[in-house]
C-alpha cells in the first residue's frame, strides 16, 4: 500500500516537471499549381466557429493570386484533358480513398467550425466522399450519355462528342463548405476541365483540408487550384478574365449578376446558382445528382465522316 502511494507520487511529480507541450498549429494556405503558397499579398483573415470562437487564420487571396491560379489551371489543362477518361476516374476515386483515411479530421472540422452534431457531421463527410466516387464513375461514361451518333440524311456517319470547356472558375457554396464544395468541384474536373475554386468565405478550412487530400492523391498540380478569401474582392477579376472559359456561380450570392455581366464581355459560359445554393450542406445530400453539373462545362464537337470508300 505504502509502496503504491510512493509510485503515484513519483508519477505526479514527473508530470509536473515535464514542460508543457507547445501546441502545433496549422497554417492554412492556398493551393496553387500543386503547391501550398501563402497569399502573394501576405494578408490573412480570421475564421471563427459557429459560436464566434476564433479557429484559425486563413489566407486572404489577392487579385494576383487569382491570376496565378488561372495561369496554373491553363497550364495543367492540356495534360489533364489529354488523359484517358478511365485514368481520370482512377484518380478521382483515389481522392475518395484518401478522404476516407482522413474521415476523423473532416468530421472534427465540421463539428468545430459549424457546430454540427457529430452524427450529422459523419453523414455529411460520408456523402462528400461518396460524391467523389460518384463522379469518378461518370468520367468514362458521360461521353456515351451526352454525345453519340446522330441520324443524318446523306451518306455520312455523324458523331457528337463532348469535350471539356477549359478553365472553370468555381465559386463554392458559402454555407456548405465540404459536401457542397465536393459536389461542385468533382463534376467540373471529372470531364477534363481544370478548376480555380474560390472556397466558402466563412468556412474555408474544410477546403484547405480537401486541398491536402488532392495534393496526395495523384491529382496533377494545377488541375484544382484553391483560393480562400473574399468572393467580392477576387471574384470580379476572375469573372472578367479572358482566359477563363466558364463560371460556376453556386456561391457567388449577391455578386452573381455582376459576375455574369462581367463574364459576358469575354463570352464566358455561366452556370447560375441552383436551388441547393444557400440551403446548407443537407441540400446537397441527394446521392444521385445526375449529369446536370457536368454538361454545362462541355463543348460538343460534331464530326461528319463519309460512309463507304
Amino acid at each position: 500500500m505504502a509502496e503504491r502511494r510512493t509510485d503515484a507520487k513519483k508519477t505526479a511529480r514527473k508530470a509536473a516537471q515535464a514542460p508543457a507541450r507547445l501546441s502545433v498549429r496549422k497554417t492554412y494556405k492556398l493551393y496553387l499549381g500543386g503547391a501550398f503558397p501563402r497569399s502573394e499579398s501576405g494578408r490573412s483573415y480570421p475564421v471563427t466557429s459557429a459560436d464566434g470562437a476564433h479557429l484559425a487564420n486563413a489566407s486572404l487571396s489577392s487579385r494576383k493570386d487569382a491570376r496565378d491560379a488561372v495561369v496554373a489551371a491553363r497550364k495543367a489543362f492540356a495534360g489533364w484533358s489529354g488523359r484517358t477518361a478511365y485514368n481520370r476516374g482512377q484518380i478521382l476515386y483515389r481522392v475518395a480513398e484518401v478522404m476516407e483515411g482522413r474521415r476523423a479530421q473532416f468530421t472534427d472540422q465540421l463539428v468545430a467550425a459549424r457546430g454540427t452534431d457529430r452524427t450529422e457531421a459523419e453523414t455529411i463527410v460520408s456523402a462528400a466522399i461518396d460524391r467523389w466516387v460518384y463522379y469518378a464513375g461518370w468520367t468514362d461514361k458521360f461521353a456515351q450519355v451526352i454525345g453519340g451518333s446522330n441520324p443524318v440524311s446523306g451518306p455520312y456517319y455523324n458523331h457528337s462528342a463532348p469535350e471539356p470547356t477549359g478553365v472553370v472558375v468555381v465559386f463554392a457554396p458559402q454555407d456548405a463548405p465540404l459536401l457542397g464544395l465536393s459536389s461542385v468541384v468533382a463534376p467540373v474536373v471529372a470531364t477534363g476541365n481544370t478548376a480555380v475554386v474560390v472556397a466558402s468565405e466563412p468556412g474555408p478550412l474544410a477546403a484547405v483540408d480537401l486541398a491536402e487530400v488532392l495534393a496526395t492523391s495523384d491529382v496533377p498540380g494545377g488541375v484544382i487550384n484553391l483560393l480562400t478569401g473574399r468572393t467580392g474582392e477576387i471574384g470580379p477579376h476572375l469573372a472578367a478574365h479572358a482566359d477563363v472559359d466558364a463560371l460556376d456561380l453556386s456561391g457567388a450570392g449577391e455578386h452573381a449578376t455582376a459576375f455574369e455581366e462581367a463574364a459576358a464581355q469575354t463570352l464566358t459560359r455561366v452556370l447560375r446558382p441552383g436551388p441547393e445554393d444557400g440551403a446548407g450542406e443537407r441540400a446537397w445530400l441527394d446521392p444521385d445528382p445526375g449529369t446536370s453539373r457536368m454538361s454545362p462545362f462541355l463543348e460538343t464537337k460534331t464530326v461528319w465522316h463519309p460512309i463507304g470508300v
Binding site: 491570376r67 488561372v70 491553363r74 477579376h237 472578367a240 478574365h241 479572358a242 482566359d243 477563363v244 462581367a262 464581355q265 469575354t266
Partner: peptide, 9 residues
C-alpha cells in the same frame, strides 16, 4: 481595359 486577356486572342 482592367481585365486579364487570354492567350487565345
Amino acid at each position: 481595359t482592367g481585365t486579364y486577356p487570354g492567350p487565345d486572342h
